[in-house]
Computed example of a mutant assay.
Amino acid sequence: MSRTLFIADLHLCQEEPAITAGFLHFLQGEAQQCDALYILGDLFEAWIGDDDPNPLHQQIAAALRALPVPKYFIHGNRDFLLGKRFARASGMTLLPEEQVLTLYGQRVLIMHGDTLCTDDTGYQRFRAKVHQRWLQRLFLALPLRVRMRIAARMRADSKQANQHKSLSIMDVNQQAVEAAMTRQQTPVLIHGHTHRPAIHHFSLHGSAAQRAVLGAWHENGSMVQVDAGGVSLIEFPF
């Protein structure tokens, strides 16, 4: 059966070996039977540079490279610094933050999803700042140990800030969703980031549209499958 698979928000780290094991099992099983695999960001909990000698990164790169299907990656808010060196090592193609695909006769827009959370103005200001190329180059030029300390502080600050935000603010804005789909002329959107797995159906300019949201890999795996029959959200045990 021809199908394309999408995953996001695994947040891989050494402190969560069960999730890593689940992902490796997925790559050796389910992912073998697809036309392509798209990873829509936050594959890793944090990324401070391709020169980080973390053995987990080397393990994941080797496992991805061994997967004999095309692999694509869109950066998330946790791993937006993942670069060409790691992409080459893992056999992945890096994509822009928005990408339109034509799958089985259907136009599909894919992204990480954080740019749709426009009600969270504090986060959007932070995102604009850290996506400045000069600042990224400056950060990556720092010693690895310094980058580790900065990243740990930023994660702690983010966690504390999110505790005081309402769930609705951290979700996508429907107007932003419709604007992106209109701009890209797509009736289907697939994204992650919000950790709220669902398929939402709505009307876009009088026509049927849908937004598929990937789940985070906490207790089980989550993927979206697109085939000739449409879009499906599938959860599965590690």
Results as ranks from 00 to 15, higher is better:
Ile39Cys: 14
Gln99Ser: 13
Leu40Phe: 02
Thr102Asp: 10
Lys71Arg: 15
Ala179Gly: 10
His195Pro: 10
Pro187Asn: 09
Glu45Gly: 05
Gly221His: 02
His25Glu: 15
Leu135Tyr: 06
Asp50Ile: 06
Gln163Thr: 14
Ile39Lys: 05
Gly105Trp: 10
Thr121Asp: 01
Pro53Ser: 00
Leu82Val: 09
Tyr38Phe: 15
Ser168Glu: 14
Asn54Gln: 03
Asp79Pro: 09
Thr182Ala: 13
Gly105Glu: 11
Thr121Met: 05
Tyr38Gly: 08
Asn54Met: 00
Gly41Arg: 06
Leu10Pro: 05
Gln28Val: 03
Arg147Tyr: 09
Phe80Asp: 09
Lys159Phe: 12
Pro96Asp: 14
Gln210Pro: 02
Arg153His: 13
Leu81Ala: 06
Gln184Pro: 00
Ala66Ser: 09
Leu204Met: 03
Phe23Tyr: 11
Ser232Thr: 14
Thr93Cys: 02
Thr186Asn: 00
Thr194Gln: 12
Asp227Phe: 11
Arg147Ile: 10
Glu235Pro: 03
Ile19Thr: 15
Val130Trp: 06
Ala61Phe: 06
Asp52Gly: 03
Ala87Met: 07
Leu67His: 06
Ala62Leu: 05
Leu40Val: 02
Arg149Glu: 12
Met148Ala: 03
Ser158Gln: 06
Phe238Tyr: 15
Gln225Asp: 04
Tyr72Ile: 07
Gln59Lys: 11
Leu144Ser: 01
Gln59Gly: 01
Phe126Val: 11
Arg127Leu: 08
Arg133Asn: 05
Leu24His: 06
Leu43Ala: 04
Leu43His: 04
Asp120Ile: 06
Leu64Asp: 04
Ala216Ser: 15
Arg107Tyr: 01
Pro143Asn: 09
Thr20Trp: 02
Val108Leu: 00
Pro70Tyr: 05
His191Trp: 11
Arg183Cys: 08
Leu135Ser: 02
Ser90Trp: 04
Gln174Thr: 02
Ala212Val: 03
Gln32Met: 07
Thr121Val: 07
Thr186Ala: 08
Gln106Phe: 00
Ile169Cys: 12
Asp119His: 13
Gln225Ala: 13
Pro187Ile: 07
Thr121Tyr: 02
Ala151Thr: 03
Ala156Lys: 14
Asp50Glu: 07
Leu233Phe: 03
Ala208Arg: 12
Arg211Leu: 03
Leu138Asn: 04
Leu101Trp: 14
Ser203Phe: 04
Asp35Met: 10
Thr115Ser: 15
Ala66Ile: 01
Tyr104Gln: 14
Asp9Arg: 00
Met1Pro: 13
Lys159Val: 11
Leu40Trp: 02
Tyr72Pro: 06
Ile48Gly: 01
Val172Ser: 12
Gly113Val: 11
Gln14Glu: 10
Asp51Gly: 02
